[in-house]
Design a protein around this nucleic acid. Structure first.
Lengths: 155, 155
DNA sequence: TTACATTAAATGTATAGACATTATATTTGT
DNA sequence: ACAAATATAATGTCTATACATTTAATGTAA
Protein backbone atom coordinates (compact mmCIF):
# COMPACT_ATOMS: atom_id res chain seq x y z
CA UNK A 1 0.00 0.00 0.00
CA UNK A 2 1.63 3.22 -1.14
CA UNK A 3 1.22 6.25 1.10
CA UNK A 4 3.86 8.92 0.48
CA UNK A 5 1.72 11.87 -0.62
CA UNK A 6 -0.97 10.83 1.85
CA UNK A 7 1.56 11.07 4.67
CA UNK A 8 2.90 14.40 3.47
CA UNK A 9 -0.49 16.06 3.71
CA UNK A 10 -1.65 14.03 6.74
CA UNK A 11 -4.60 12.74 4.78
CA UNK A 12 -7.03 10.51 6.64
CA UNK A 13 -9.37 9.32 3.90
CA UNK A 14 -8.02 7.80 0.70
CA UNK A 15 -8.16 9.21 -2.80
CA UNK A 16 -11.08 8.43 -5.09
CA UNK A 17 -8.81 7.37 -7.96
CA UNK A 18 -5.25 7.45 -9.31
CA UNK A 19 -6.25 10.62 -11.17
CA UNK A 20 -7.41 12.35 -8.02
CA UNK A 21 -4.22 11.35 -6.27
CA UNK A 22 -2.27 12.59 -9.28
CA UNK A 23 -3.78 16.09 -9.25
CA UNK A 24 -3.07 16.50 -5.54
CA UNK A 25 0.42 15.06 -5.96
CA UNK A 26 1.12 17.40 -8.85
CA UNK A 27 0.12 20.47 -6.85
CA UNK A 28 2.08 19.34 -3.81
CA UNK A 29 5.21 18.46 -5.79
CA UNK A 30 5.03 21.73 -7.68
CA UNK A 31 4.96 23.55 -4.36
CA UNK A 32 7.98 21.57 -3.26
CA UNK A 33 9.94 22.47 -6.39
CA UNK A 34 8.95 26.14 -6.08
CA UNK A 35 10.15 26.20 -2.48
CA UNK A 36 13.47 24.78 -3.63
CA UNK A 37 13.75 27.37 -6.35
CA UNK A 38 12.87 30.27 -4.08
CA UNK A 39 15.57 29.16 -1.71
CA UNK A 40 18.03 29.67 -4.57
CA UNK A 41 16.61 32.97 -5.86
CA UNK A 42 15.83 34.74 -2.63
CA UNK A 43 19.41 35.78 -1.79
CA UNK A 44 19.43 37.65 -5.11
CA UNK A 45 16.10 39.38 -4.51
CA UNK A 46 14.40 37.64 -7.42
CA UNK A 47 11.03 35.94 -7.44
CA UNK A 48 10.43 32.90 -9.62
CA UNK A 49 8.33 34.88 -12.08
CA UNK A 50 10.84 37.72 -12.33
CA UNK A 51 13.55 35.13 -12.98
CA UNK A 52 11.44 33.53 -15.71
CA UNK A 53 10.84 36.85 -17.43
CA UNK A 54 14.54 37.68 -17.22
CA UNK A 55 15.40 34.40 -18.95
CA UNK A 56 12.86 35.06 -21.67
CA UNK A 57 14.52 38.43 -22.27
CA UNK A 58 17.95 36.83 -22.42
CA UNK A 59 16.64 34.25 -24.88
CA UNK A 60 15.99 37.03 -27.38
CA UNK A 61 18.91 39.28 -26.49
CA UNK A 62 19.99 41.61 -28.02
CA UNK A 63 16.58 41.83 -29.70
CA UNK A 64 13.81 43.56 -27.76
CA UNK A 65 10.73 41.64 -26.63
CA UNK A 66 7.24 43.13 -26.52
CA UNK A 67 5.14 42.70 -23.39
CA UNK A 68 2.66 40.55 -25.33
CA UNK A 69 5.51 38.25 -26.44
CA UNK A 70 6.65 37.86 -22.84
CA UNK A 71 3.14 36.86 -21.81
CA UNK A 72 2.99 34.29 -24.59
CA UNK A 73 6.25 32.69 -23.49
CA UNK A 74 5.51 32.69 -19.77
CA UNK A 75 4.67 29.50 -17.92
CA UNK A 76 1.76 31.25 -16.35
CA UNK A 77 -0.05 33.05 -19.15
CA UNK A 78 -2.36 34.98 -16.86
CA UNK A 79 0.25 36.62 -14.73
CA UNK A 80 0.77 40.23 -15.48
CA UNK A 81 3.88 40.70 -17.59
CA UNK A 82 3.45 44.46 -17.50
CA UNK A 83 3.82 44.62 -13.73
CA UNK A 84 6.62 42.05 -13.65
CA UNK A 85 8.55 44.20 -16.11
CA UNK A 86 7.96 47.14 -13.73
CA UNK A 87 9.75 45.23 -11.00
CA UNK A 88 12.69 44.35 -13.26
CA UNK A 89 12.91 47.99 -14.33
CA UNK A 90 13.02 49.17 -10.74
CA UNK A 91 15.99 46.84 -10.17
CA UNK A 92 17.61 48.03 -13.40
CA UNK A 93 17.63 44.48 -14.74
CA UNK A 94 15.60 45.46 -17.82
CA UNK A 95 14.98 48.53 -19.97
CA UNK A 96 11.76 49.65 -21.59
CA UNK A 97 11.60 51.77 -24.75
CA UNK A 98 8.70 52.76 -26.94
CA UNK A 99 8.53 50.62 -30.05
CA UNK A 100 9.25 52.90 -33.04
CA UNK A 101 6.88 51.24 -35.56
CA UNK A 102 3.97 50.87 -33.16
CA UNK A 103 3.61 53.41 -30.40
CA UNK A 104 1.16 51.18 -28.53
CA UNK A 105 3.80 48.51 -28.06
CA UNK A 106 6.78 48.56 -25.74
CA UNK A 107 10.19 47.04 -26.38
CA UNK A 108 11.78 45.39 -23.37
CA UNK A 109 15.47 44.47 -23.29
CA UNK A 110 17.57 42.88 -20.56
CA UNK A 111 20.34 45.13 -19.26
CA UNK A 112 24.00 44.32 -18.73
CA UNK A 113 23.21 44.10 -15.01
CA UNK A 114 20.43 41.61 -15.77
CA UNK A 115 22.74 39.48 -17.91
CA UNK A 116 25.34 39.43 -15.15
CA UNK A 117 22.78 38.37 -12.57
CA UNK A 118 21.63 35.52 -14.80
CA UNK A 119 25.24 34.47 -15.28
CA UNK A 120 25.57 34.13 -11.52
CA UNK A 121 22.34 32.13 -11.34
CA UNK A 122 23.61 29.84 -14.12
CA UNK A 123 26.56 28.90 -11.97
CA UNK A 124 24.22 27.76 -9.22
CA UNK A 125 21.97 25.74 -11.48
CA UNK A 126 24.01 22.56 -11.82
CA UNK A 127 24.56 22.37 -8.09
CA UNK A 128 20.89 23.15 -7.43
CA UNK A 129 19.70 20.52 -9.86
CA UNK A 130 21.40 17.75 -7.92
CA UNK A 131 18.51 17.79 -5.46
CA UNK A 132 16.44 16.14 -8.19
CA UNK A 133 18.90 13.31 -8.56
CA UNK A 134 16.79 10.85 -6.62
CA UNK A 135 15.31 10.41 -10.06
CA UNK A 136 17.65 9.08 -12.74
CA UNK A 137 17.80 10.95 -16.05
CA UNK A 138 15.70 8.18 -17.59
CA UNK A 139 13.07 8.62 -14.89
CA UNK A 140 13.04 12.38 -15.42
CA UNK A 141 12.50 11.73 -19.13
CA UNK A 142 9.65 9.38 -18.31
CA UNK A 143 8.10 11.97 -15.99
CA UNK A 144 8.35 14.52 -18.80
CA UNK A 145 6.69 12.13 -21.21
CA UNK A 146 3.81 11.47 -18.81
CA UNK A 147 3.27 15.17 -18.10
CA UNK A 148 3.20 15.96 -21.82
CA UNK A 149 0.81 13.11 -22.43
CA UNK A 150 -1.43 14.22 -19.56
CA UNK A 151 -1.88 17.58 -21.21
CA UNK A 152 -2.51 15.93 -24.54
CA UNK A 153 0.66 17.45 -25.95
CA UNK A 154 2.03 15.17 -28.65
CA UNK A 155 5.14 15.29 -30.78
CA UNK B 1 13.18 14.67 -30.98
CA UNK B 2 10.49 15.40 -28.38
CA UNK B 3 9.17 18.96 -28.23
CA UNK B 4 5.76 19.20 -26.51
CA UNK B 5 6.54 21.43 -23.55
CA UNK B 6 8.97 23.43 -25.69
CA UNK B 7 6.17 24.18 -28.15
CA UNK B 8 3.72 25.06 -25.41
CA UNK B 9 5.94 27.80 -24.07
CA UNK B 10 7.38 28.77 -27.48
CA UNK B 11 10.88 28.04 -26.24
CA UNK B 12 13.67 28.74 -28.69
CA UNK B 13 16.71 27.34 -26.90
CA UNK B 14 16.73 23.82 -25.52
CA UNK B 15 16.78 22.72 -21.89
CA UNK B 16 20.05 22.11 -20.10
CA UNK B 17 18.99 18.68 -18.87
CA UNK B 18 16.02 16.35 -18.34
CA UNK B 19 15.82 17.78 -14.82
CA UNK B 20 15.58 21.34 -16.05
CA UNK B 21 12.92 20.32 -18.54
CA UNK B 22 11.14 18.46 -15.74
CA UNK B 23 10.92 21.46 -13.41
CA UNK B 24 9.52 23.67 -16.17
CA UNK B 25 7.14 20.94 -17.28
CA UNK B 26 5.96 20.44 -13.71
CA UNK B 27 5.16 24.13 -13.25
CA UNK B 28 3.46 24.35 -16.62
CA UNK B 29 1.38 21.21 -16.10
CA UNK B 30 0.40 22.31 -12.62
CA UNK B 31 -0.86 25.56 -14.09
CA UNK B 32 -2.84 23.58 -16.65
CA UNK B 33 -4.47 21.42 -13.96
CA UNK B 34 -5.25 24.48 -11.81
CA UNK B 35 -6.92 26.18 -14.78
CA UNK B 36 -9.04 23.07 -15.29
CA UNK B 37 -9.99 23.03 -11.63
CA UNK B 38 -10.86 26.72 -11.51
CA UNK B 39 -13.11 26.22 -14.48
CA UNK B 40 -15.06 23.75 -12.35
CA UNK B 41 -15.08 25.78 -9.12
CA UNK B 42 -15.69 29.26 -10.46
CA UNK B 43 -19.45 28.88 -11.07
CA UNK B 44 -19.77 28.10 -7.36
CA UNK B 45 -17.69 31.08 -6.24
CA UNK B 46 -14.97 28.92 -4.72
CA UNK B 47 -11.24 29.26 -5.17
CA UNK B 48 -9.01 26.18 -5.20
CA UNK B 49 -7.66 26.94 -1.76
CA UNK B 50 -11.09 27.55 -0.26
CA UNK B 51 -12.22 24.25 -1.75
CA UNK B 52 -9.22 22.48 -0.24
CA UNK B 53 -9.91 23.91 3.21
CA UNK B 54 -13.56 22.96 2.93
CA UNK B 55 -12.62 19.36 2.16
CA UNK B 56 -10.24 19.28 5.10
CA UNK B 57 -13.12 20.43 7.32
CA UNK B 58 -15.42 17.76 5.92
CA UNK B 59 -12.74 15.12 6.50
CA UNK B 60 -13.02 15.77 10.24
CA UNK B 61 -16.73 16.52 10.41
CA UNK B 62 -18.48 16.68 12.82
CA UNK B 63 -15.33 17.30 14.83
CA UNK B 64 -13.93 20.84 14.81
CA UNK B 65 -10.53 21.59 13.27
CA UNK B 66 -8.14 24.18 14.67
CA UNK B 67 -6.56 26.70 12.32
CA UNK B 68 -3.13 25.19 12.95
CA UNK B 69 -4.47 21.74 11.96
CA UNK B 70 -5.83 23.16 8.72
CA UNK B 71 -2.44 24.65 7.91
CA UNK B 72 -0.75 21.33 8.56
CA UNK B 73 -3.07 19.50 6.18
CA UNK B 74 -2.99 22.06 3.40
CA UNK B 75 -1.10 21.44 0.19
CA UNK B 76 0.44 24.83 0.50
CA UNK B 77 1.68 25.12 4.06
CA UNK B 78 2.51 28.80 3.82
CA UNK B 79 -0.85 30.05 2.71
CA UNK B 80 -2.81 31.78 5.38
CA UNK B 81 -5.43 29.43 6.79
CA UNK B 82 -6.73 32.18 9.06
CA UNK B 83 -7.72 34.38 6.14
CA UNK B 84 -9.07 31.51 4.08
CA UNK B 85 -11.35 30.61 6.97
CA UNK B 86 -12.48 34.26 6.99
CA UNK B 87 -13.66 33.86 3.41
CA UNK B 88 -15.51 30.61 4.16
CA UNK B 89 -17.15 32.30 7.13
CA UNK B 90 -18.33 35.20 5.02
CA UNK B 91 -20.01 32.70 2.69
CA UNK B 92 -21.47 30.81 5.65
CA UNK B 93 -19.68 27.64 4.57
CA UNK B 94 -17.88 27.32 7.91
CA UNK B 95 -18.35 28.32 11.52
CA UNK B 96 -15.76 29.52 14.00
CA UNK B 97 -16.08 29.10 17.76
CA UNK B 98 -13.63 29.70 20.55
CA UNK B 99 -12.07 26.47 21.70
CA UNK B 100 -13.29 25.81 25.29
CA UNK B 101 -10.10 24.18 26.66
CA UNK B 102 -7.71 26.68 25.07
CA UNK B 103 -8.89 30.22 24.54
CA UNK B 104 -6.01 30.94 22.13
CA UNK B 105 -7.24 28.31 19.70
CA UNK B 106 -10.25 28.48 17.42
CA UNK B 107 -12.51 25.59 16.44
CA UNK B 108 -13.62 25.61 12.82
CA UNK B 109 -16.48 23.43 11.60
CA UNK B 110 -18.05 23.07 8.17
CA UNK B 111 -21.71 24.15 8.04
CA UNK B 112 -24.66 22.32 6.54
CA UNK B 113 -24.44 24.75 3.63
CA UNK B 114 -20.76 23.88 3.19
CA UNK B 115 -21.52 20.14 3.20
CA UNK B 116 -24.21 20.63 0.59
CA UNK B 117 -21.88 22.62 -1.65
CA UNK B 118 -19.25 19.88 -1.43
CA UNK B 119 -21.91 17.30 -2.26
CA UNK B 120 -22.63 19.19 -5.48
CA UNK B 121 -18.91 19.40 -6.29
CA UNK B 122 -18.59 15.64 -5.70
CA UNK B 123 -21.11 15.01 -8.42
CA UNK B 124 -18.97 16.95 -10.89
CA UNK B 125 -15.72 15.24 -9.96
CA UNK B 126 -16.06 12.01 -11.93
CA UNK B 127 -17.04 13.90 -15.04
CA UNK B 128 -14.26 16.43 -14.50
CA UNK B 129 -11.67 13.74 -14.00
CA UNK B 130 -12.27 12.30 -17.46
CA UNK B 131 -10.13 15.09 -18.92
CA UNK B 132 -7.15 13.28 -17.43
CA UNK B 133 -7.99 10.08 -19.24
CA UNK B 134 -5.38 10.54 -21.91
CA UNK B 135 -3.31 8.84 -19.24
CA UNK B 136 -4.36 5.29 -18.33
CA UNK B 137 -4.80 4.46 -14.66
CA UNK B 138 -1.49 2.63 -14.79
CA UNK B 139 0.22 5.70 -16.21
CA UNK B 140 -1.34 7.90 -13.52
CA UNK B 141 0.02 5.45 -10.92
CA UNK B 142 3.45 5.65 -12.54
CA UNK B 143 3.30 9.45 -12.52
CA UNK B 144 2.40 9.34 -8.84
CA UNK B 145 5.31 7.01 -8.13
CA UNK B 146 7.77 9.28 -9.94
CA UNK B 147 6.51 12.42 -8.17
CA UNK B 148 6.81 10.72 -4.78
CA UNK B 149 10.29 9.52 -5.65
CA UNK B 150 11.31 12.97 -6.88
CA UNK B 151 10.48 14.42 -3.48
CA UNK B 152 12.28 11.57 -1.76
CA UNK B 153 9.05 10.37 -0.24
CA UNK B 154 9.28 6.62 0.32
CA UNK B 155 6.82 4.07 1.62
C1' DT C 1 -11.80 61.13 -43.84
C1' DT C 2 -14.21 59.93 -40.13
C1' DA C 3 -16.59 56.47 -37.35
C1' DC C 4 -15.96 51.89 -35.52
C1' DA C 5 -13.52 48.03 -34.28
C1' DT C 6 -9.22 46.05 -32.83
C1' DT C 7 -4.85 45.78 -30.53
C1' DA C 8 -1.16 46.76 -26.83
C1' DA C 9 -0.24 48.00 -22.54
C1' DA C 10 -1.42 49.82 -18.17
C1' DT C 11 -4.39 50.03 -14.25
C1' DG C 12 -8.00 48.51 -10.79
C1' DT C 13 -9.76 45.02 -7.65
C1' DA C 14 -10.19 40.81 -5.17
C1' DT C 15 -7.77 36.64 -3.78
C1' DA C 16 -3.79 34.20 -2.44
C1' DG C 17 1.33 33.28 -1.19
C1' DA C 18 5.38 34.38 1.71
C1' DC C 19 6.88 36.22 5.35
C1' DA C 20 7.33 39.27 9.72
C1' DT C 21 5.03 41.16 13.54
C1' DT C 22 1.59 41.58 17.03
C1' DA C 23 -1.94 40.32 20.52
C1' DT C 24 -3.52 36.96 23.68
C1' DA C 25 -3.38 32.91 26.25
C1' DT C 26 -0.97 29.13 28.21
C1' DT C 27 3.04 26.69 29.94
C1' DT C 28 7.29 26.40 32.33
C1' DG C 29 11.05 27.46 35.44
C1' DT C 30 12.47 29.38 39.57
C1' DA D 1 3.22 33.06 42.41
C1' DC D 2 5.28 35.36 38.89
C1' DA D 3 8.37 36.41 35.09
C1' DA D 4 9.91 34.45 30.87
C1' DA D 5 9.20 31.42 27.20
C1' DT D 6 6.14 29.36 24.09
C1' DA D 7 1.90 28.61 21.42
C1' DT D 8 -2.11 30.16 18.61
C1' DA D 9 -4.30 33.06 15.69
C1' DA D 10 -4.77 37.48 13.60
C1' DT D 11 -2.83 41.26 11.12
C1' DG D 12 0.44 43.94 8.06
C1' DT D 13 3.21 44.26 3.87
C1' DC D 14 4.84 43.07 -0.51
C1' DT D 15 4.41 40.13 -4.49
C1' DA D 16 1.80 37.57 -7.70
C1' DT D 17 -2.61 35.63 -9.90
C1' DA D 18 -7.03 36.23 -12.27
C1' DC D 19 -9.62 38.72 -14.06
C1' DA D 20 -12.22 43.33 -15.81
C1' DT D 21 -11.67 47.89 -17.25
C1' DT D 22 -9.30 51.80 -19.21
C1' DT D 23 -6.21 54.46 -22.20
C1' DA D 24 -4.07 55.18 -26.28
C1' DA D 25 -2.67 53.85 -30.97
C1' DT D 26 -3.63 51.49 -35.14
C1' DG D 27 -6.49 49.28 -38.76
C1' DT D 28 -10.57 49.10 -41.46
C1' DA D 29 -14.77 50.18 -43.82
C1' DA D 30 -18.28 53.32 -45.38
Amino acid sequence: MTMPIENDIKQTTSFRSPYHRMTVNLMYTNGWVCDEQMYLLKPYGLTIQQYNVLRILRGQYPNPVKVADITERMLDKMSNASRLVDKLLAKELAQRTECPNDRRAVDVVITEKGLELLKIMDQHQNQWETRFHNLTEAEADELNRLLDKLRGSTE
